[in-house]
Design a protein around this nucleic acid. Structure first.
Lengths: 253, 253
DNA sequence: TAGTGGTCTAGACCACCGA
DNA sequence: CGGTGGTCTAGACCACTAG
């Protein structure tokens, strides 16, 4: 990160700074390495800390940096490829499922979810919370909405709530014949509860994957999964091994 | 947007503000309506303009607001669902393709692309630029990398460059038998050229869709498409009609 | 307790748009 | 031209982490 001055160009400073830092990351830093702190970096480039932070935010959004309060800013590893909806004919909770059930409650879903499920606006459904872990790190949190009509043989005996209940609901779900599913991906920001589960601050950028499970001619379940946008690359289809790097990147010693 | 004061809570002000504004958008504003300007809003809530802007940025990221310099901040319409990779067995440029060819040059691709294509690091490939328009608005910009070996019968006569050349390359591509494709989605920020084409500022959040086209046992083409993250919801699979709204939202008169 | 990133302020000037 | 959002500054204090 040799030089120090910025030229006067019509380009915003923070954008130019982003480019300079990005190139420095490629050529002079290793994955996991700690950058100088924000005050030092700002001084080194002759800009205010807020401006420097704007550049860092961009790079964090692009998955190049990882920042943790009280710790520092480190060079992020390449994003992990996470397979989404590979098996078009498996329910959530199938044996090879990557998700872990956390909890389950019976409650009235948000209006938009009720509409998609074609349930009444005040009708409670099973809401299963699940989480997905990759290399020991949480990468996604999910809410699964399942109308009572999709699990007709569920007995209240199994468990009133909790992960045991979640497993019972998912077990019942397997009895239906799955006809297909739909996926949609959009950008969102983590709500407080999701943020906590993903080990991020509220408002952190997430990729929201909405999956509709179709059975007996209607939507039998709806999944809303939020993936950490900074660390994840979602892969669809067969072999999710497309690897496009920005440039040279070394491994930390 | 009745009241004015914020309480003292351990929650960041901008986050609380985001919630308050979000609820106001649901209940008191119509799509397309113009909000008060940032200075007035900040004064009304008793915060600095920078703090108010943090809240607006969140809402823009979530696709709730649209801000344009020199104009103002308006309530955004719901995101449009854009189908991605519906037909697993059609090349780019097939008759029903949603993309419009813009340009085509023969150049050396970035190192990561060359690696994915298994071409030499210095070997030039055809780079086709295309754009995708939805309701009269540009929603995505694409770079298509096609090795010369995938279009062996292309004659230099057709056109040296430009959209005519692009069409010629795509036409030749149809002669190969497509075996399948891979998609990957990740968050990125718009480079200067893409930003211009998408009518956004550099650094705007985009969803980057990387598609690998497989033929004759290898990667015969690679597409890197950047979609406006603020206005698009990407849909995969059959019927991309999952509609999850935040809440009530009226139409502008 | 010392050092980090996260939040917040109160200004200033600039780039762009529409009348 | 006046008004909008976009950029930038130079501070301050807070929340968190690690030694």
């Amino acid at each position: 990160m040799g030089t120090t001055q910025l030229e006067s160009v019509p380009e915003p400073k923070y954008w130019h700074l982003r480019t300079v830092l990005s190139e420095a990351l490629d050529s002079e830093f290793s994955v996991g390495e700690i950058l100088p702190n924000e005050r030092d970096l700002a001084a080194r480039f002759g800009v205010a800390r807020a401006t420097l932070r704007q550049a860092l935010e961009q790079l964090e959004l692009e998955g190049r940096l990882q920042r943790r309060r009280g710790v520092g800013t480190t060079v992020a590893p390449p994003r992990v490829g996470v397979a989404v909806g590979t098996d078009q004919h498996a329910w959530p909770g199938a044996p090879d499922d990557a998700w872990q059930p956390v909890d389950c409650v019976l409650a009235v879903p948000p209006a938009g979810v009720a509409a998609a499920l074609e349930t009444g606006a005040e009708e409670p459904v099973h809401i299963v919370r699940r989480s997905r872990v990759f290399h020991g790190q949480p990468v996604a949190a999910e809410l699964l909405y399942i109308p009572a009509s999709s699990v007709p043989d569920l007995t209240a005996i199994d468990a009133p709530s909790g992960s045991a209940r979640a497993r019972a609901v998912l077990r019942e779900l397997q009895h239906l014949e799955l006809e297909g599913r739909d996926n949609a991906v959009e950008l969102g920001s983590a709500r407080a509860d999701d943020a906590k589960e993903l080990d991020r601050l509220p408002g952190a950028p997430v990729l929201v994957v909405t999956t509709r499970f179709l059975a007996v001619g209607r939507t039998a379940a709806l999944s809303v999964a939020t993936y950490r946008a900074d660390t994840c690359r979602l892969t669809f289809g067969d072999s999710g091994s497309v690897e496009i790097h920005h440039g040279p990147e070394r491994q930390a010693s």
